[in-house]
C-alpha cells in the first residue's frame, strides 16, 4: 500500500474528530489534517512489513492470568462521595442534558 492512498482528507479528519467527541474550527481542522498527513508518512516504515504470518499476544509478565480468584463483593464508594465530584446532580443521580 502506498502512502498517497492513506492521505486523510479534511472531511475524513472532521468525521474522526467528531467520533472522538472533539470539535474543531475549519482552520484547526485544516492545520490538523496537514499535521496528521505528515504523521502518516512517519508510519510509512510499517508499509514494508508483511504482517500476515506474524502473531500477536499479550504481556507475558501478566502472571495474574494464571491466578483466578472468586469474585468477592466489597463496599464501593458511598453514593454521596461519587456525586460530590459534580455540580450537576438530581435525585441521587448525575444530571445530563436530554438526549431526545
Amino acid at each position: 500500500m502506498v502512502i498517497d492512498e492513506k492521505m486523510a482528507t479534511v472531511k475524513e479528519i472532521g468525521e474522526v474528530a467528531r467520533s472522538a467527541k472533539l470539535e474543531l474550527s475549519e482552520e484547526q481542522l485544516k492545520l490538523l489534517s496537514e499535521q496528521l498527513n505528515n504523521t502518516f508518512s512517519f508510519f510509512a516504515k510499517t508499509d514494508k512489513w508483511d504482517a500476515e504470518k506474524i502473531q500477536f499476544d499479550y504481556h507475558k509478565n501478566l502472571t495474574s492470568l494464571e491466578h483466578y480468584h472468586e469474585d468477592i463483593v466489597k463496599p464501593s464508594l458511598p453514593q454521596d462521595t461519587v456525586l460530590g465530584m459534580t455540580r450537576c446532580k438530581k435525585n441521587g443521580s448525575f444530571e445530563v442534558p436530554g438526549i431526545l
Binding site: I13, S19, L22, L32
Partner: peptide, 10 residues
C-alpha cells in the same frame, strides 16, 4: 492531546 486522540481514534 487532541492530535493524539484523533489519531488514536483513526
Amino acid at each position: 492531546v487532541k492530535r493524539r486522540l484523533i489519531l488514536g481514534t483513526y
